[in-house]
């Protein structure tokens, strides 16, 4: 499903002394099946932006078109929209409320008025997608399992709606490295194997560099940069001015190049860097 955002502006608490512009004339397009990274420091408007994409917030000005349907015009389409555009909030485990893991994941599908068989099928499938064992976990309370598992139950709760577009707001915040790698791996699989369109909001340049096709950089309620990772990460000074950065490994590569080593310029993941440095060392020893 494609998403088109045209001249989107959002003003919070308009007409009160607390009025603030959260989005200022933002326009972009996301193609079907794309994996887009959304970065920007705290308060840059990322969260406000993603909440527009599934109709939780209405634009003050501008249009949003999802799958060729203008969602700003049709107010009745909210159910359709929320089923097709899944949004996983920051710390999604705080939204869990049911007595068992099964019931919590089933909350979304039940709201879609599906049959019991279909609900069960979807819960099973969603748990599989996030790597949770259905039989051993379905009857446990979501409050007695580990933090990483809780987060995955919450993500499964959104996946059980079978969205075509999945938006994740910092899905790895506060997780240990193992939990983080697992969740990112599963998100990658959702994109590769299921062909889901994914929008990942993150503060980790490493994760973004490793996963996404395209990056959108938000700064002061506007889009500051947009493009492929290598394009965006080549604007080092601009990114640092916005309180952002390039992946750490890219700093290492820059340092090597400054010292006259022959490594290619646009390297943004550890794997690429390792390969490039090995190639360079081998090239030297051969010479």
């Amino acid at each position: 499903m494609s998403i088109v955002v045209e001249n989107l502006t959002h003003v919070y608490m308009k007409g009160s002394p607390f009025e603030s512009v959260a989005l200022d004339d933002v326009s972009f397009e996301i193609q079907d099946g794309e994996f887009v990274g959304l970065i920007g420091h705290t308060g840059s408007g990322k969260s406000t932006l993603v909440q527009h994409l599934n109709g939780l917030l209405k634009p003050t000005k501008g249009r949003i078109i999802v799958d060729n349907i203008d969602i700003t015009e049709r107010t009745k389409s909210s159910k359709w929209l929320r089923q097709h555009v899944g949004l996983v909030f920051q710390y999604p485990e705080h939204q869990l409320f049911e007595e068992t893991v099964y019931l919590d994941i089933a909350f979304g599908p039940k709201n879609l008025n599906l049959s019991n068989d279909e609900v069960e099928k979807r819960v099973r499938e969603a748990m599989e997608l996030v790597g949770l064992d259905y039989d051993s976990l379905k009857d446990r309370s979501p409050f007695e399992i580990s933090g990483g598992q809780r987060r995955r139950v919450a993500i499964a709760g959104v996946l059980a709606m079978k969205p075509k577009v999945l938006i994740l707001d910092e899905p790895t915040a506060g997780l240990d490295p193992k939990g983080r790698d697992e969740i990112l791996g599963q998100i990658k699989d959702l994109h590769r194997e299921r062909g889901m369109t994914i929008i990942l909001v993150s503060h980790s340049m490493e994760d973004i560099a490793k996963l996404v096709d395209r990056i959108i950089v938000m700064n002061n309620s506007r889009i500051a940069l947009m493009g492929k990772p290598e394009e965006v990460f080549s604007h080092v000074d601009e990114l640092q001015e916005m309180g952002l950065d390039i992946p750490q490994i890219a700093h290492v590569i820059r340092g090597l190049r400054e010292r006259g080593m022959d490594v290619p310029e646009n390297i943004y993941t550890v794997e690429q860097a390792a390969a490039a440095i090995l190639a360079m060392v081998r090239g030297r020893s051969n010479a």
Partner: peptide, 29 residues
């Protein structure tokens, strides 16, 4: 509220009883 609405929860329609029931996913968390 928004997180539950993203999962299809409906806080705004239905009769009094349905609305009260719809508050459980909000109040527990």
């Amino acid at each position: 509220m928004k997180a539950q609405m993203a999962r299809g929860a409906d806080f705004e329609s239905g009769n009094l009883f349905q609305r009260a029931k719809a508050l459980v996913p909000l109040l527990v968390p």
